[in-house]
Design a binder for these strands. Structure first.
Length: 648
DNA sequence: TCCGGGGTTTTTTTT
DNA sequence: AAACCCCGGA
């Protein structure tokens, strides 16, 4: 007999950490509910306590599905909920939309035309495969049509837009790049080829993870029923940044029980380029019986900063007035500098002053619209030996050596993965693009014919013979293990360590990175789980395991989403830079406004908005002056709410 | 035909 | 970091 333990009761006093609005949202939400949150209003806390509340009511952790924007956010909420409830929440399924989708999809891969050992293409790999599809189509086109075919990057962004918004090809081209309207037919052909190739190669790109899950649910009512029975509650964070596909997935998963709890702030929707629709917020409220809660008290920023925030609320957002609870003595400061050199000097000098006043570098962040804006500043920080970390820029998993190693692992998991084969094969002597593609194709043939693919590698003669023999040898060795970190070590011993030595001057650092990768891998015993996690979660970070404490943070505004610091500098607030000139020319100035809103709402105590009188660092686009495009955010700031500093 | 070494340019944000 | 182009050599 099985003796079932009742859930540990959670006493009411546990909710004493919540204010009235928050408590209302947590305790009175049921069925279909949405929480409209202002910045800094304790949205993480509300979701955390929603989990606590559910568990206290006897819901099992395995019946809760939590979807967030970053893995770090999910982890934070679970950790906090674990502390409050004292229950280990291991069975709870939580993570980014993509990782959760992958998790749910893996079991049913067959039903959407895939094998369950499919591998996931990151953005770059997907773009490479799009290039492959493009060249297949291009080969059978006459010269004039060949020329009309957009570059692979453009094709990929149109395709991605089409998938994210579920619109027609025509609409996607019109929205992303109207000048390719005449090439619709051949673009369509490339997309067909791309999709076929993905199925053939048993690979999915990021969009597929979502679209295929939606298809699975739509086309298989029994699967939909069993999944939505399995979960009793669907929780979604950052709802304003979900796209249509994510919205539909969430709705479908909640179909049976009707329990769906979403939290968002339409003023902070900043991912429209990825299909995010802040309109989802409105649609959600208007469809069905939706309970609407608001949490509008700002606990993060001082009243002086909140005054400015209230005046800078984006035009198209739902009207709201934040209440501040923290008194501050400093108005936000608008800083005028001459050029980016002077801007960097100002920021660095001010940071030095703050640090000598006892503020920890941890509490300081510099935010900017695009990576390139940080260059000058990084140099200056390094020069003056101020400890800093850069959240933006090339990520760990995007470095060449990590991608090389992952390519080998992907081959082992899914030998049909063409992009990975090409990448790995080209590392060997005498092999270039052409041979590598041939290798990948003959391997696929061998696998389809049920043969051992290492045989296929031995059939090549000429210059590449030796290299391919070595490759075959390496693969044979790697196949002896199924443990990801063991495979990485075998690869290093057998081949890659030497390769790094004769290829790169900084081989030592790169080897160190690979060692780190092996260490991360050692937490997994399944190759599939390791690869899934590393390709679907962003927070592997630029340098995992590095001691990131006590450092000034440099970050794009996008990556600063959800974070906060005592002192925030927003730099390069010039028309053209921020707002970005490309966004403006695409008519997307609303989103730039929201982005600026996100930037200034990260600050707790001190906010510096820095701009340059010289304007954009890149003033000319073609022969037009870029900085004449778009208005300056600085001009929109009410003078009485800020202090103005001139640097000289 | 293909490899690989040399060069230059890249210019938004990213799961 | 990698796409792109050019060119010498196999």
């Amino acid at each position: 007999m099985k003796y079932i333990l009742k859930p540990k009761p959670v006493p009411e006093r546990i909710f004493k950490d919540l204010d009235e609005e928050q408590k209302n949202a947590v305790l009175n939400s049921k069925g279909r509910s949405i929480v409209i949150a202002g910045p800094g209003s304790g949205k993480t806390r509300v979701i955390t306590y929603k989990i606590v509340h559910l568990i206290s009511q006897g819901v099992s952790p395995s019946e809760i599905l939590l979807m967030t924007f970053t893995r770090a956010a999910a982890k934070e909420m679970i950790d906090r909920a674990r502390n409050v409830t004292g229950r280990d929440l291991k069975e709870m399924i939580a993570g980014t939309f993509h990782s959760v989708s992958n998790h749910l999809l893996r079991k049913y891969a067959k039903l959407v035309g895939y094998e369950n050992n499919y591998t996931i293409l990151d953005r770059h790999d997907a773009e490479t495969l799009m290039g492959h599809a493009r060249s297949i189509v291009s080969e059978r086109l006459p010269l004039d049509l060949k020329r009309a075919l957009p570059k692979k990057g453009v094709l990929f962004s149109i395709h991605s837009y089409m998938m994210n918004t579920l619109c027609s090809l025509e609409e996607a081209v019109r929205a992303k790049n109207p000048r390719f309207m005449e090439a619709l037919d051949i673009i369509k052909e490339v997309f067909q080829t791309y999709t076929e190739e993905k199925v053939k190669q048993n690979v999915m790109d990021y969009d597929d993870l979502l679209v295929n899950l939606l298809r699975l649910l739509e086309e298989n009512p029994d699967v939909e029923k069993s999944l939505s029975r399995r979960f009793k509650w669907i929780l979604v964070d950052e709802f304003q940044d979900t796209n249509v596909v994510q919205y539909l997935i969430a709705e479908r998963l909640a179909k049976v029980h009707g329990n769906i709890f979403v939290v968002g702030d339409d003023a902070q929707s900043i991912y429209s380029f990825r299909g995010a629709r802040f309109e989802n917020v409105e649609d959600f409220i208007n469809s069905g019986e939706t309970l609407v809660f608001r949490i509008q008290t700002n606990y993060r920023s001082t009243d002086k900063i909140v005054d400015l925030i209230n005046r800078m609320i984006p035009k198209r957002a739902v009207k709201k007035e934040l209440r501040s609870v923290r008194k501050g003595d400093k108005k936000p400061i608008v800083v005028e500098t001459f050029d980016d050199e002077e801007q960097a000097l100002f920021v660095v000098q001010r940071i030095e002053e703050l640090i000598s006043n006892g503020i920890s570098p941890d509490d300081i962040a510099v935010l900017y619209r695009s990576h390139s804006h940080s260059m000058r500043l990084e140099m200056e920080l390094t020069f003056r030996r101020i400890p800093h970390k850069v959240l933006s820029g090339l990520k760990f998993t995007e470095t060449a050596h990590v991608k090389d190693v992952l390519a080998f692992l992907k081959i082992l998991q899914n030998p049909l993965d063409l992009v990975s084969w090409v990448r790995a094969t080209k590392l060997f002597d005498g092999v270039g693009d052409v041979t590598a593609s041939k290798v990948a194709i003959s391997v696929a043939k061998a696998v389809d014919g049920g043969k051992d693919y290492t045989e296929a590698l031995k059939s090549f003669g000429g210059k590449s013979k030796k290299g391919l023999e070595k490759l075959s040898e390496v693969i044979t060795t790697l196949r002896k293990s199924e443990n990801p970190s063991e495979i990485i070590e075998l690869l290093m011993d057998e081949f890659y360590s030497d390769y790094l030595d004769y290829t790169y001057e900084n081989a030592r650092e790169r080897k160190e990175d690979v060692r780190m990768l092996a260490e991360i891998a050692s937490r997994y015993d399944s190759l599939e789980r390791f690869l899934s996690d590393i390709t679907t979660s962003e927070d592997v970070g630029p340098r995992p395991f590095e001691d990131d404490k006590d450092k000034v943070t440099l970050s794009t505004v996008h990556q600063a989403k959800g974070l906060e610091w005592k002192v925030v500098f927003v730099i390069s607030v010039n028309p053209g830079d921020f707002p970005n000139y490309l966004a403006i020319s695409e008519g997307n100035s609303d989103e730039e406004e929201r982005l600026f809103y996100v930037a200034i709402t990260r600050a707790k105590d001190e906010l510096y908005i820095v701009h340059q009188t010289l304007g954009s660092r890149r003033p000319y686009i073609g022969n037009r002056i870029a900085w004449s495009r778009g208005e300056s955010f600085v001009d929109k700031i009410p003078e009485d709410l800020v202090e103005v500093w001139e640097v000289g």
